[in-house]
């Protein structure tokens, strides 16, 4: 029990946030690093206590983060590793130190995974390729910048409402001299015939081989499939997540509030501004041009409305052509082989 007391004194979430400040560190890695830190801070004296402390730490992280999927992948990986680590150390303190070292070593190693993936993806990018990507992903950005060194590429990137992270990608690519145009999330079908393939990053790749990514990836994959364009996902192997969602609503991020309808009796804030939208609709039906520039702020969704929308969605494996990861180029089904290797058997 002392282990639990210790872990409350040590704020794992703050540590996690601290690690995340480094732009190179993604949530699963930050989670692994925080858990490694937790090993040092915990005064667990047995393996059981240590694993308990780690599970508690992982729970804590999950509870306090809004989007626990990818950090959970990191936690699971690290805890499974700790449990199965073949230890020869005589005393437990030594073992703890060893495990902590392993966590750190992995995190440093993992930084290079993106370069590896960028190198693998390079083989699939032809000269003069037109690429569509979604939102912001470090690994996609790295792959595109890497390809730019040797090939002429141009990129369409979606705006990715409501967080607008596509703008970040757009700025980074433009700064590097890659021709890049922002497209509306709703214009994906319009642009699809112009692109050679779709390249997306990922929050997590799940056991079915499907993909969890910023909302909008699923529709992009469906449209790509309909247009017969390859849909490639890039994912570092620490994002392989032992989850088997059968639908969007099986994701851990789904909650009853998402997509809920307002109750007709309780006239809440959401309902009261609905008429104002209706009137606005009637008045600005005229010139479409002026409308987009002037009313973009007025027409934005409110925070509550956004809260009713999902942040991530699930893309079925049959829509994904290939998954590029640091362990190699895999078919979506291939991902499960690695997950089974780590977590089953």
């Amino acid at each position: 029990m002392s282990a639990v007391a210790q872990s409350t004194a040590f704020d794992i979430y703050a540590t996690f946030q601290q690690f995340l400040k480094d732009d190179e560190i993604s949530p699963p890695l930050a989670a692994i690093l925080s858990l490694a830190e937790a090993i040092v801070k915990s005064n667990a004296g047995t393996m059981f206590e240590l694993v308990q402390a780690l599970t508690d730490g992982a729970e804590e992280l999950k509870r306090r983060s809004q989007n626990p999927i990818s950090l959970n992948a990191g936690c699971e990986l690290f805890i499974a590793f700790v449990t199965l680590f073949p230890h020869e150390a005589d005393n437990f303190a030594e073992l703890k130190e060893e495990l902590e070292q392993q966590g750190r070593k992995y995190a440093t190693e993992a930084i290079s995974f993106r370069d590896k993936i960028a190198e693998l993806a390079l083989g699939f990018i032809k000269d003069d390729a037109v690429i569509l990507t979604h939102s912001y992903s470090r690994v996609v950005l790295k792959a595109l910048l890497h390809a730019h060194k040797t090939k002429r590429i141009s990129v369409y990137v979606t705006e990715s409402r409501p967080r607008g992270l596509g703008l970040k990608t757009h700025d980074a690519l433009t700064a590097a001299g890659i021709p890049c145009t922002l497209v509306l999330d709703s214009a994906v079908a319009y642009v699809m015939d112009r692109v050679d393939f779709v390249l997306v990053g990922s929050e997590a790749v799940v056991e079915s081989g499907g993909l969890i990514n910023y909302v909008g990836s699923n529709q992009m994959a469906i449209i790509a499939k309909a247009a017969n364009k390859p849909f490639y996902a890039l994912a570092e192997s620490y994002k392989f997540h032992r989850l088997f969602p059968l639908s969007q609503y099986d994701l851990p991020t789904h909650n009853p509030n998402i997509l809920s309808f307002p109750t007709p009796t309780g006239r809440s804030a959401g309902h009261s501004d609905a008429p104002s939208f209706a009137t606005l609709d009637a008045t600005t039906k005229g010139p479409v041009r002026s409308q987009t520039s002037s009313s973009s702020t007025e027409r934005a969704m409110s925070q509550e409305q956004i809260a009713k929308n999902p942040g991530v969605d699930y893309t079925r494996p049959d829509l994904i052509s290939l998954v590029f990861s640091d362990v190699g180029i895999l078919t979506p089904e291939g991902v499960s082989q690695y997950l089974v290797g780590m977590f089953a058997g």
């Binding site: 192997s237 780590m342 058997g345």
Partner: peptide
């Protein structure tokens, strides 16, 4: 005795 996390990912348990 070189068993690392990346090996764990690659080769499984």
């Amino acid at each position: 005795n070189v068993y690392t996390i990346s090996k764990f990912v690659l080769q499984g348990q």
